[in-house]
Design a protein around this nucleic acid. Structure first.
Length: 917
RNA sequence: GCCCAGGUGGCGGAAUUGGUAGACGCAGCAGACUCAAAAUCUGCCAUUCGCAAGGAUGUGCUGGUUCGAUUCCAGUCCUGGGCACCA
């Protein structure tokens, strides 16, 4: 009988479905285990071979835990709102709801072919009104909450209103900007609008002005992704920064708790580092500099107040509010020119192109707060408006960027660290002794920091300050395909919808163009605008910030998740996903969890106990090169010195490196009239190994592989590729080897001619040893997510059983159980063959029996002076003296000793022997 | 630029705490079976010198620690991921 994987796999998939084999319910009698994948965005390209890598890993782990007696929650769903569906709608006119529905159907059928053990009865889709009703509900709770720094938790906004009514702004950790230091009486005197503006400064979801990528030609806001080298990817139009009203989440209030929480979770150190760096907590001082001829002061934030006497100039961000008012007549023109230049530069460019030093003098001078010396005030793009106060004090002798700036613009440099400063480059040390530094003279820099802060505070020119690099999270998009905000605007006041009106459903639209002022498409719907509804929608991470809770209680119409249910399932025990979410999704969902915990709706404040990062399966991308500002495409070999933009092109339109020019023209309307500069009559693409993703058009479909080799082979091959956390380029060619393994396993049970060959004979010790060695290794590897080595161990086990011609049921049935998490279909089929009652999915995981694993002797490697010269089989009982005697008698050792006496013999039991001469 | 990760045969990778580098698999080569092919099985397979026995070299590069380094330390080069509107 042959291994007919297609028949076996479809048969058992249907059987498991009919028997609801994967449905889970709360079962207080068993320990629970919640294993979760980061749910996918259902892209039009369908699943590619990179997606299932993590899914297979979590599926194996889930099945493994189930065999070990755990009640395993292992759900799947779809992050179905997002920009690509909308982009597709713009290009094809198809409604995103429709394309999303189709895409999800494709994804589900693809996933089911691979044989995952998801409980589909718990599926969630973020674009489903029954789901986003609760996303909107949580948004309303965020809107109606503030962060009480004294209690160190979120509270209903009413507690803030009560507090303001009782004692005004007195004692608030963060003073309002709208009205400073008001009393209770003043508060009650404010009009509704003023009160709302003040409250808006505290709401955890709030509205304010912020900058976006604005493309005038398209009349729309663009994602960073859609901007390539300062121009729009579609059409190549100029893009500038523009201020627009936006929604934000006040995640900065949670900065410290997000940092502390990292100590309680099991994420990789690299992941924790990335989050810590993103949050970017720093301690320093904020101090103010007076400006000649002006009342206003420039506030700067510095982590190095000890270098205060080394300040040679101040630098403001070009967007800084004082730039216009302090610029002198003589510098006006230069400043305006510079501002126009900066407006065309993205934040990314400003940070990364640091070799090119730019800046402009405002003509204004500030006073040094201690020496009274005049200090020139510059603006420069390397100072970002969003960080700190948007202004820095430049200390060229201690900071390389300040140094480069001073050199470039010939600003004299003050040396406050004597010989520690070479004059050739800055020295950012904290260990030098200060000179020319007034009251700090002679002090070690690191000791001077607290002294400087103390003097700054005493002089009333500044104060100690903790600063975070992290900014509040932008929470609105000028887009259609996202959750509508349950907000109406009445005379500029944001008014929440009553919870009973939820969900506020996304209205149907015919077109997806931007609104008249660059708002989202909702601004084109008269009824929507007439109802004064917010026209932005929520970003992709809204729905994904809490979905893991909904899986626990997916059909609840009374709340987002019943507290009793979340108390049973608790935190996600293992969360599997890519590192690309390190600072986005993972921080937002941690913040939402803390918020829901603060308000008492769930009982834990970290969502994910353990995080496993699967590596990227990389794709091999192809590029076309567009001459800047045109629709002319230049073959790779001819690009030479041309100014070109490299654009990704779908690998399916490329044969090797040669582009199918006609397919490319049909691909996007923009390219319909593309011209091509060919080499040898061909358009040759560039190539690069990078992330496999829908946006890079370099995906490979798993369906073909499942069709050709079966799901079990595909699952094991993905695991066999390498460590789960490592990135590796996809290569299909090795899959044959894993398929051979499956057939070899099959032949332990069946012979093509003879039929069933398995027997009920009693196994020998050697056979037991092979089995138990495998059980031990594989159980350990599976627990540690070391699936590639586990697959090797299966191969070794089957190879050895084949060599022993072992077809014995007692051995094989155990092998099937440990293999079932990896290759469930073939194991279930063979389990059945052996006449077992019930499903292998519910068998009990065998324990390794050490009795069969003990060794009595070892082939020791024997080195002379660290170089391997011989191996000797020696009893494991042997001690140092016995071993020394044996080793010195060895001919090869004697040859290498060449009559010289040995200095010592290093013997590590069960490891090695080294003779030192 | 900043943060994070990774560099081991032709290829994917393996190697408890620092202890036999290259498990397992792919590709390749030789052979068995076959009219032939497929499938299957056996052997070889880091580089280099050597008929062989055996030797030398070898885990991106340069140093260091150690009896012993793929593993630890310092520096350096390269590749990948993230950098706030892709999700």
């Amino acid at each position: 009988m042959e291994y007919d994987f297609r028949k076996i796999e479809s048969f058992w998939q249907q059987r498991w479905k009919d028997n609801r084999q994967y449905a889970v319910t709360q079962d207080p009698g068993k320990p629970k285990c919640y294993v979760l994948d980061m749910f996918p965005y259902p892209s039009g390209a369908g699943l590619h071979v990179g997606h299932p890598l993590g899914y297979i890993a979590s599926d194996i782990y889930s099945r493994f835990k189930r065999l070990q007696g755990f009640n395993v929650l292992h759900p799947m769903g779809f992050d179905s709102f997002g920009l690509p569906a909308e982009q597709y709608a713009i290009e094809t006119g198809q409604h995103p709801a429709e394309t999303t529905r189709n895409n999800i159907a494709t994804f589900k059928s693809q996933l089911d072919k691979i044989g995952f053990c998801y409980d589909w009865e718990r599926e969630v889709q973020t674009s489903d009104p029954a789901y986003y009703r609760w996303t909107q509900w949580i948004f309303l709770q965020l809107f109606n909450s503030w962060y009480n720094t004294d209690a160190n938790r979120a509270e209903p906004i009413q507690t803030l209103i009560d507090r303001l009514a009782a004692k005004g702004s007195e004692g608030l950790a963060r003073q309002p900007q709208t009205k400073a230091h008001f009393s209770a009486a003043e508060w009650s005197g404010f009009d509704a609008r003023t009160r709302e503006e003040i409250l808006m400064e505290y709401r955890l979801a709030y509205s304010a002005y912020g900058e976006v990528n604005w493309c005038e030609a398209l009349g729309t806001v663009l994602a960073n992704d859609e901007v390539v080298n300062g121009v729009s990817e579609r059409g190549g139009h100029p893009v500038v920064r523009k201020k627009m009203r936006q929604w934000y989440l006040r995640i900065t209030e949670y900065a410290d708790r997000l940092l502390e929480g990292l100590d309680k979770v099991s994420f990789s150190d690299a992941m924790k580092d990335m989050q810590r760096n993103w949050i970017g907590r720093s301690e320093g001082a904020e101090l103010s500099f007076g400006i000649q001829g002006h009342d206003k002061k420039i506030n700067v934030y510095t982590t190095r107040p000890d270098t205060i006497f080394g300040v040679d100039f101040l630098v403001l961000a070009p967007e800084h509010e004082l730039v216009q008012s302090i610029t002198t007549g003589a510098q006006r023109l230069a400043i305006d020119e510079y501002l126009a230049y900066v407006k065309s530069r993205s934040e990314r460019e400003r940070m990364s192109e640091v070799k090119q030093i730019t800046g402009c003098f405002t003509g204004a001078y500030a006073w040094h707060p201690f020496t009274g010396q005049p200090i020139p005030v510059w603006i420069a793009e390397y100072v970002l408006a969003g960080y700190g106060t948007g202004a820095i004090m430049a200390v060229p002798c201690g900071d390389q960027r300040d140094f480069g700036f001073a050199k470039h613009f010939n600003i004299p440099i003050t040396n406050i660290i004597g010989s520690a400063f070479s004059g050739e480059e800055a020295n950012p040390t904290k260990d030098a002794v200060l000179e020319q530094s007034g009251f700090l003279d002679g002090m070690l820099m690191k000791d001077a920091i607290p002294v400087a802060i103390q003097r700054i505070e005493a002089a009333g020119i500044g104060k100690r300050k903790v600063n975070y690099r992290m900014r509040d999270a932008g929470f609105s998009r000028q887009r259609y395909w996202g959750e509508p905000f349950p907000i109406t605007w009445n005379d500029g006041i944001a008014t929440p919808l009553p919870e009973t009106d939820l969900p506020l459903e996304l209205p149907f639209v015919e077109t997806y163009g931007p609104g008249p002022e660059g708002e989202g498409p909702l601004a084109n719907i008269p009824e929507w605008v007439d109802a004064k509804r917010e026209t932005s929608t929520m970003p992709g991470y809204a729905g994904s910030s809490w979905y893991f809770l909904r899986y626990m209680d997916p059909r609840n119409n009374e709340s987002f998740c019943d507290r009793k249910v979340s108390d049973y399932w608790g935190q996600v025990d293992v969360y599997v996903g890519g590192t690309e979410h390190a600072v986005g999704h993972l921080l937002y969902s941690r913040m939402w969890t803390k918020f829901l915990y603060d308000r008492g709706w769930i009982g834990f404040d970290e969502p994910f106990k353990k995080l496993v990062n699967q590596g990227m399966i990389q794709g091999s991308s192809r590029f076309v090169y567009r001459r800047k500002g045109t629709q002319a495409f230049i073959s790779h070999g001819l690009t030479g010195r041309e100014e070109v933009d490299a654009l990704h092109v779908d690998v399916n339109m490329v044969d090797g490196l040669e582009l199918n020019v006609e397919a490319f023209r049909r691909w996007k309307p923009d390219f319909a009239n593309a011209e091509f500069l060919l080499e040898d009559g061909k358009y040759i693409c560039g190539s690069e190994v990078e992330k496999m993703s829908k946006s890079k058009y370099n995906t490979v479909n798993p369906d073909d592989l499942v069709m050709k080799y079966g799901a079990d082979t595909f699952r094991m091959y993905e695991m066999f590729l390498g460590p789960i956390e490592a990135s590796k380029p996809w290569d299909t060619k090795g899959i044959e080897g894993v398929h051979r393994f499956m057939r070899k396993l099959w032949r332990l049970f069946y012979d093509e001619l003879k039929g069933a060959v398995w027997t009920r004979e009693t196994p020998t010790d050697a056979e037991w040893k092979v089995l138990h060695k495998a059980i031990k290794k594989i159980a350990q590897d599976t627990e540690q997510f070391s699936f590639n080595t586990a697959v090797s161990a299966f191969m070794v086990c089957v190879n050895e059983l084949s060599d022993l011609k072992c077809h014995k049921k007692e051995i094989l049935e155990n092998l099937l159980i440990i293999l079932a998490p990896y290759a469930p279909h073939i194991c279930e089929e063979l389990w059945n063959t052996l006449g077992q009652s019930g499903s292998v999915l519910d068998a009990a995981y065998p324990k390794a029996d050490e009795r069969y694993l003990v060794e009595t002797s070892k082939d020791y490697p024997v080195s002379v002076n660290g170089k391997l010269r011989a191996t000797m089989n020696i009893s494991l009982e042997a001690g140092q003296e016995e071993v020394e005697a044996l080793v010195l008698q060895n001919e090869i050792v004697q040859k290498w000793l060449d009559g010289k006496p040995h200095k010592k013999i290093i013997f590590v039991k069960n490891k090695m022997i080294n003779v030192v001469v």
